[in-house]
Design a protein around this nucleic acid. Structure first.
Lengths: 153, 153
DNA sequence: TGACTCATGTCAGTATTCTGACATACGGTG
DNA sequence: CACCGTATGTCAGAATACTGACATGAGTCA
């Protein structure tokens, strides 16, 4: 009731829009990943590993925006299912470098294609200059949020 | 190891950046909301209610990007703590219109100021034209994601 | 060498959210 | 009036992620 016809002049703050966009992206990714039996975090881990082989559990966790503990649970599943391998003993320190197996790489290929289609759809409404601008804008927002605004010149 | 000095040329896809920005924003919000004993979803619900009094549980859920079930749990807590009121019986249909109590409104004021400071910090790295562009860009991305790209002219 | 700090992996418990399912209430249609 | 599709609130169970805490390994410094 009053969902589509009401003006919905809610916040329309950039923060709300950002959350809305992120939510829409996640939903779209889940939709195309589900038929492949993969979750977004699942995919993120594999993609991270493909681009930077040998990442440790903690590094993977940071890259996927989850805790070490959550990523560890996921890695155990991926390892059990044969998508990822980790040495029995750490080569140095405590960090166990993870790597994709051929099976993991194959699985990632399909998922990667699916996700790419979502990203292309997301970009389809933007002009090239807008796409370039989006990179800079999001980058600036992240930087300001992390370093504390304009204080960290 | 190799976290700050490595190039981190990861995806750098717009999707990843969007997730990164959203994650940074959420973390920043949690940080300023925690001293007030509030979570992000908690705050979102109150803010939604302030701007659109009488929203139902389902409508609030959509606005906060969670399920009806999750929002219902939250609403019960907010009701118990005296921040929100709902009539015992639905005036029409099954939807129970929720409203902020004076206590809820007071609580929201502080939270709102805190969140606003975060949003200002996020915007501090952007020029005015960039801020305007950000609205349009995020809006376009959401639209394309929801309606299926350029197919829905 | 010994103490200190930091990062990592891991265990345990908790919290939050989600999926599935059901009954109810409104609106449209025959 | 009866039927059907949609939307809502709600209950129950499962999945997921988080916080807290601990021991280990590496680097630094006296």
């Amino acid at each position: 009731m009053s969902q589509k016809d009401a003006g919905v002049d809610l916040d329309k703050s950039l923060g709300y829009l950002l959350k809305e966009a992120s939510s829409a992206l996640r939903a779209a990714m889940e939709e195309v990943l589900r038929p492949l039996g993969m979750t977004v975090t699942h995919y993120s881990c594999l993609e991270l590993l493909a681009q930077r082989p040998g990442l440790s559990n903690s590094e993977l966790a940071r890259g996927a925006f989850v805790t070490r503990q959550s990523m560890n649970v996921l890695l155990q599943t991926l390892e059990r299912d044969g998508y990822v391998t980790r040495p029995a003993a750490p080569p140095v320190g405590k960090a166990l470098p993870a790597r994709l197996t051929p099976s993991g790489r194959r699985s990632l290929e399909k998922a990667s294609a699916a996700v790419r289609s979502v990203e292309l759809r997301m970009l389809s409404g933007l002009t090239e200059p807008e796409q370039t601008a989006a990179f800079g804008i999001l980058g600036s927002m992240i930087h300001s949020l992390r370093d504390g605004g304009d204080a960290a010149g």
